[in-house]
Design a protein around this nucleic acid. Structure first.
Length: 435
RNA sequence: GCCGCCGUAGCUCAGUCUGGAAGAGCGCCGGACUGUGGAUCCGGAGGUCCCGGGUUCAAAUCCCGGCGGCGGUCCCA
């Protein structure tokens, strides 16, 4: 046990992990930019009043980090997601609609940590503010899908539903009491199966007739078009259901990854602020929960700005993407440093070190990440260091090189060694790096 | 939050059952080795045995409570 440890559910990220994370984040960010999204950042800390009442009872009572500032006596909270801070941001800034923004940053949730779940994690969030139309929802799904695919994860599925279908069917047509508990139960369908859902509904006190109706609804499956047809036939008379079916149909027309989409009435999602389409990305193989999710929230921003501002968005959870990719063997933690070249000093005198430093600077000027010895270590110790770090090109500098104004380049991959004039070092090193 | 397993060096763990001097491998640092060995060998550093209490002549080991990690549940990214 280390003497000083980090708080539960929080982690340090050492260089090899950070190098992988940054690579993945770069791919995601490039995809976002390609679709016209621009970055924003907001504070980690918000006033508790800002976040209050947006996520649902359970989240706010147990999951949001909140505390009283001992100096000002004010209540603060660490942000729980990036969507509510966006809504708050809009009350302080004038933007042009559609406002397409991305936000890649940390969020905090006081949950019990386990596989793929941490108390501090990063979300890669995109939103379109201002559009009520299904093509905006479809664009979010397309961007997220492409980003996930660009990372190298191919075997994902997109579960799609609409809050209006849930409300129309369960709350209005069936007029169920305590719908939240029903949502909780049907949300578990994937894990416990139809029998499990039946049992839990019975345990919760619902009549057999009601249970069979619920089962009938959530067992509608097949292609998205077929599912929507059936729902419309059964519940199209309900205004909310009709709106949702129409919206999802139009949305599907714009989705490039339609073969990955399934419309599932058992998809619920916890956050209170969703009002229309909702979706979740899941991978089958590592059992890791969802890797991305989102939906439409037409009423959230109005709370902050006073203006009705329909919006839609979603986010990718980077730690789950990484955990899944590592487990599937798509990613490897094989890069320990960005450094490409190590300049090795064979003698620990001022002249040799100045010469080594000059060569390193020549390489750096060409943008080649280069290290020199600052430990005055033996040749062996320096060589071992370079090997351990996976630096394949070593430039040897000793009294001979200094007096002859030369350098010896050693390439570990090919095992070749070459003595070159000082003026040609950069050029020759580049050849080794490319070869 | 609840249930289960676990906690000994930076990491993986042995030792715990049956109480009696704190260990191994890997990693880290250095050397053998005269200037270009992903080798081999040698040496060195590194410990609150998770924390607190109890039992005992004696606790890493037994008992109680806490904390932390992992898996499940809940929920979600």
């Amino acid at each position: 046990m280390p003497k000083y440890s980090v708080p539960k559910g929080f982690r340090d990220l050492p260089p090899d992990i950070m190098i992988l994370r940054k690579k993945i984040l770069r791919i995601i960010e490039e995809t976002f930019i390609k679709y016209g999204y621009d970055p924003i950042e907001t504070p980690a800390l918000e006033y508790w009043d800002t976040l209050k009442g947006k996520y649902g009872e359970e989240a706010e009572n147990k999951l949001v980090y909140k505390f009283k500032d001992p100096w000002s006596e004010k209540w603060y909270a660490l942000r729980y997601d990036l969507t509510v801070p966006l809504a708050r941001f809009l009350s302080n800034h004038v933007v042009q609609f559609p406002f397409r923004r991305y936000h890649i940053s940390r969020v905090w949730r006081h949950e019990n940590p386990q596989r793929g779940r941490y108390r501090e994690f990063w979300q890669c969030d995109i939103d379109i503010v201002g559009s009520p139309y299904p093509e905006a929802d479809a664009e979010i799904v397309n961007v997220l899908s492409e980003a996930i695919e660009n990372i190298g994860l191919r075997n994902f599925k997109i579960k799609l539903n609409d809050r209006r279908m849930l409300a129309g069917i369960f709350e209005e047509t069936l007029s169920l009491k305590n719908v939240i508990s029903v949502y909780r139960i049907i949300d578990k369908l994937d894990k416990i199966g139809y029998e499990g859902v039946r049992e839990e509904l019975a345990k919760a006190g619902y009549s057999n007739e009601t249970i069979e109706k619920i089962i009938e609804i959530i067992s509608i499956s097949g292609s998205p078009e077929k599912v929507l047809d059936e729902i419309e036939e059964m519940y199209g008379g309900n205004r909310k259901v009709g709106e949702a079916v129409l919206h999802l149909r139009e949305m599907l027309d714009f989705i490039k990854y339609r073969n990955k989409v399934s419309v599932e009435l058992s998809l619920v999602r916890g956050l209170d602020y969703y009002t229309g389409p909702i979706f979740e990305y899941v991978v089958e193989k590592p059992k890791i929960g969802s890797i991305a999710g989102g939906g439409r929230y037409d009423n959230l921003i109005e709370i902050y700005t006073g203006k009705h501002t329909p919006s839609t968005g979603g986010s990718i959870g980077i730690e789950r993407v990484i955990d899944a990719g590592l487990e599937l063997g798509i990613f490897r933690l094989d890069m320990k440093t960005y450094t490409k070249v190590y300049v090795l000093s064979l003698k620990h005198d001022r002249e040799t070190y100045l010469y080594a430093s000059a060569i390193a600077n020549m390489l750096r000027e060409k943008g080649i990440p280069t290290q020199v010895d600052v430990m005055r270590r033996s040749e062996q110790a320096q060589r071992r260091y370079a090997i351990k770090k996976g630096i394949n090109v070593v430039v040897y500098v000793g009294p001979k090189e200094v007096s002859e104004r030369r350098a010896t380049i050693y390439d570990r991959k090919s095992g070749t060694r070459k003595v070159v004039d000082l003026g040609r070092v950069v050029e020759e090193v580049l050849k080794f790096l490319e070869g």
